[in-house]
Nucleic acid binder design. Structure first.
Length: 512
DNA sequence: TTCCGACAGTGGGGTCGCAAT
DNA sequence: ATTGCGACCCCACTATCGGAA
């Protein structure tokens, strides 16, 4: 198949807003693809590269290359070139990668260049990623969409399932079963604004502490242990403690779901930054493991002794977990009988926060383990802090926010009458707010430099955030975690905004 | 007809590792 | 040694479509 056909469909998909039409367009192309092309075409149209990241980014791709006049590239040629690109390493590799990119781009037409750029930078922006591609694939092969989704969850990738489906038809789906050693997509939680709201939605439920660490899926098959992240990367080698723990548990074959986190000498959780830094270290793991040891804490069991537990209610999965994993290595929890018993949940949340944790996850007692779309049976609840800050500058947006001032630079007052920037946010704005702030900030503009428009510090905005963290980037030595706009405070003058001092005082455990 | 779940898009900060300067 | 870049961790929120109620 020619790359130009693919790039053309991608454009068509981007041009329509109707999901049903996107699915129809994708299905048509998938039907055309030869089985050998499917391996490439499916992920490309889902906006991903089969070989993952390449070590090539926006910087290298932005160098202009004269486009080819006529489309001639096949998807298989592109795949071969990108495969070679991903393997380049060592001294001189950046130049070699740039050369290969130039070669590829020079063989592509203008439309193909645009598509390749989006594909490699991960910004396809056609309004159709995995979920829509799954629908298209189901349509093309006449397989039930739910069965395809489940197979994708079990295979951990759309690509594997697509290849099997297109070459063997719908019967191929039955071969995708839960297998110890092969990671599956993890079940995720939605958000609720209070435990009362969460318990109201779920009825009888269990409330578990939410640890601020790294999600892990641990597979043990005899002496072999593998540890995977939320995105299914294999991080076994970085976590010798987890391997040791898994080998000592009284079971030969199992899959457990949990979190790794580092505790200090007093048993209090260290900051996310400390845990993440430790887990991210690949060099001299033995040393960092002594300095910042991590502990696995489990909350679910997907498979025990060859038994697939995915479709069992949570209560039964947890019973299996409890047989296998002793108390301190399980997440603390409490059972709540229903909305009449919210007080139990609230007390548990307060205690959990007191112990230094992030919040809680409220889970339905009878829900199966599912990464598919079965509604929200896990709901996380975290405390939200708010501040009144001053807009110091704003950045022009991209994509659907082109022409709008989007990303706000947020400042708190300092003792000397100035402002210290605490971070940025683009979250929480409605289209109406976006239009309004673009107008208003333009009036206040004093300087424009590339994407950044500096303004007179007059606009006060209420910001919600999850907590403070240390920063080397910002002048106060701290920054807001997950800042988002709540509303503009036109009733407030900048002199009434919060100060750096009050921000720091609200988070005594975080020091610059 | 209205409501609501699922999805895509829009980016945030931090840390690590590697190559280039 | 320091800097720049890319890969991955963590993540919130809104708009929109389309099926469920």
């Amino acid at each position: 198949m020619l790359l130009s056909r693919l790039a053309g469909v991608s454009q068509e998909v981007a041009a329509t807003s109707a999901r049903s039409h996107k699915i129809a367009l994708l299905a048509e192309l998938f039907r055309e693809a030869e089985p050998e092309d499917a391996r490439i075409v499916i992920p490309y149209l889902a906006g991903r590269l089969p070989q993952g990241r390449l070590g090539v980014g926006w910087k290298v791709l932005s160098r202009p290359v004269p486009p080819a006049a006529e489309p001639a590239l096949t998807v298989r040629e592109v795949d071969a070139l990108l495969g070679a690109l991903g393997k380049v390493s060592g001294p001189g590799s950046q130049a070699e990668r740039a050369r290969l990119v130039g070669e590829l781009m020079g063989a592509a037409t203008e439309e193909e260049q645009r598509f390749l750029f989006g594909l490699i930078t991960g910004e396809v922006r056609q309004g159709a990623l995995d979920a829509v591609a799954v629908e298209g694939l189901a349509r093309a092969t006449e397989a039930p969409p739910d069965a395809v989704r489940r197979a994708v969850m079990l295979a951990g990738s759309l690509q594997t399932v697509a290849e099997a489906l297109l070459s063997q038809g719908p019967e191929a789906l039955e071969r995708f079963r839960l297998t110890v050693g092969r990671p599956v997509l993890p079940m995720l939680a939605h958000s609720a604004s209070s435990v009362a709201e969460a318990v109201e939605k779920l009825g009888a439920c269990v409330v578990e502490e939410k640890l601020d660490g790294i999600r892990v899926q641990v597979h043990r098959d005899g002496d072999t242990v593998r540890v995977h992240t939320r995105t299914l990367d294999d991080i076994t080698d970085r976590l010798p403690e987890v391997t040791r723990v898994a080998r000592e548990l009284p079971g030969e074959r199992f899959i457990l779901d949990g979190e790794v986190i580092s505790f200090d000498a007093d048993g209090r959780p260290r900051s996310f930054q400390e845990t993440a830094g430790r887990v991210g270290s690949r060099v001299d793991v033995a040393t960092v493991a002594r300095e910042v040891p991590v502990s696995p804490v489990f909350f679910d069991a997907l498979s025990v002794d060859g038994r697939d537990l995915l479709d069992l209610p949570f209560t039964e999965r947890h019973a299996e977990l409890a047989r296998l994993v002793p108390e301190p290595m399980r997440v603390r929890r409490t059972v709540v009988s229903g909305p009449d018993d919210v007080a139990t949940a609230e007390t548990f949340l307060a205690e959990t926060l007191e112990r230094g944790h992030e919040g809680v996850v409220v889970k339905s007692l009878d829900a199966p383990y599912s990464a598919g779309r079965r509604g929200a049976s896990w709901l996380k609840v975290k405390p939200v802090h708010t501040l009144d800050l001053v807009v110091l500058a704003a950045e022009w947006g991209h994509g659907r926010r082109t022409g709008k001032l989007s990303n706000l630079h947020l400042g708190a007052r300092t003792a000397d009458g100035g402002y210290a920037m605490l971070g940025k946010t683009f979250k929480g704005m409605t289209d109406k707010m976006l239009a309004w702030q673009t107008e208003r900030l333009r009036e206040l503009a004093v300087e424009e430099n590339g994407y950044v428009v500096t303004v007179r510090p007059e606009l006060v905005v209420e910001i919600a955030y999850d907590g403070l963290q240390r920063s080397t980037r910002y002048p106060a030595g701290v920054t807001l975690r997950f800042a988002r706009v709540v509303r503009y405070r036109e009733d407030k003058r900048p002199e009434e905004a919060d100060t750096v001092e009050t921000v720091l005082a609200a988070h005594p455990q975080v020091r610059p």
